[in-house]
Amino acid sequence: MFNVIVQRNSMGSIWNPANVCCVQFSPYSSHLLAFGSADYRIYCYDIRHIRIPWCTLAGHGKTVSYVRFLDSETMVSASTDNTLKLWDLKKTSLEGLSPNACNLTFSGHTNEKNFVGLAVLDGYIACGSETNEVYAYYKSLPMPITSHKIGCIDPISGSEINDENGHFVSSVCWRRKSQMLASANSNGNIEILRMV
């Protein structure tokens, strides 16, 4: 059964001068919305007051492809500048940019042109890489805690093939309460992984 939106007009509109690449409601607040933009910034809005951003986070060197709320006071962003950033929302400012809100920059994966996925769970952060690998980080460590190369399976023969075609991990998703992670790549392979 599908629900249909019966509202003729939107409740409000937010305009951004650059392309919006991702949008995320906070699971910890009924009023907070964040989005990543092609202008290298993250904008957070209180949807009760959408005239101006609640805060603007600056620090990435390229397009912000994903934003995820790690908890009620912390957000993670991914960018095609090969980094993830951890943002402390308590260090934000209502006036102008909040570059000092970045607590940590994560690096180790490769991400320069594709959107490679980002998922968070209980302080763990997972993202894809253009090396056809999944990387896992922990919120207090700047380097990966583990990585896993996704195999490439020939759809006709079912046998593993050498990955020389530049496949990349395109999506990652944690399963709550199980430490399981689903990852998918640009070749159509999906692997289920478990953190131990």
Rank of each mutant, 00 (worst) to 15 (best):
G166T: 07
S26M: 10
C44H: 00
M75V: 04
N19C: 10
Y28W: 15
G36Y: 00
N132K: 07
S170H: 04
A58T: 15
M75F: 01
H60R: 11
Y45A: 09
F25L: 11
A182K: 03
V116T: 14
R51S: 08
I50C: 05
Y40L: 11
G158A: 11
S37D: 06
C173D: 02
E191P: 07
A126K: 02
E160G: 12
S170W: 00
P144S: 02
V4M: 09
A126H: 05
C102P: 04
E130L: 14
V116R: 12
Y43R: 10
N189A: 07
G36P: 03
S157N: 02
I150T: 06
F168D: 02
G59D: 07
T131L: 14
S147W: 03
V67M: 04
V172R: 03
D154G: 08
S140C: 08
C44W: 00
S79D: 01
L118W: 01
Y138E: 15
D163E: 14
F35I: 13
A182R: 05
M143L: 14
I14N: 05
G128Q: 02
L141A: 10
V172P: 02
F69R: 03
Y43V: 07
S147V: 00
L181C: 04
G166I: 10
I52E: 09
L32I: 14
V76A: 04
G151C: 12
P142L: 07
I42A: 03
S37Q: 06
I145H: 09
G188S: 07
R48C: 05
C102H: 03
P53T: 01
A136V: 10
R194Y: 06
Y137T: 07
F106C: 08
I156G: 01
N9F: 04
L86G: 13
G36F: 00
E130A: 13
T83P: 10
K91P: 13
I192R: 01
T146D: 00
V196D: 05
H49Q: 11
H60E: 10
F115K: 02
L181H: 00
C21V: 02
W54V: 00
A101V: 08
I161R: 08
D81A: 08
F2K: 15
L94H: 06
S13V: 13
S79C: 12
R176Q: 15
R41Y: 03
V76Y: 00
F168P: 04
V67W: 00
T92S: 12
E164T: 12
Y28T: 11
N16L: 14
I50W: 00
T74A: 04
N100Y: 06
F35G: 13
P155L: 14
F115S: 05
D81I: 09
P155N: 13
S72M: 13
N114T: 03
K91V: 13
S93W: 09
D46I: 04
I190P: 09
R51K: 15
F2N: 14
W15G: 09
T80C: 07
N3A: 14
S26A: 05
G123A: 11
A182Y: 03
Q7I: 01
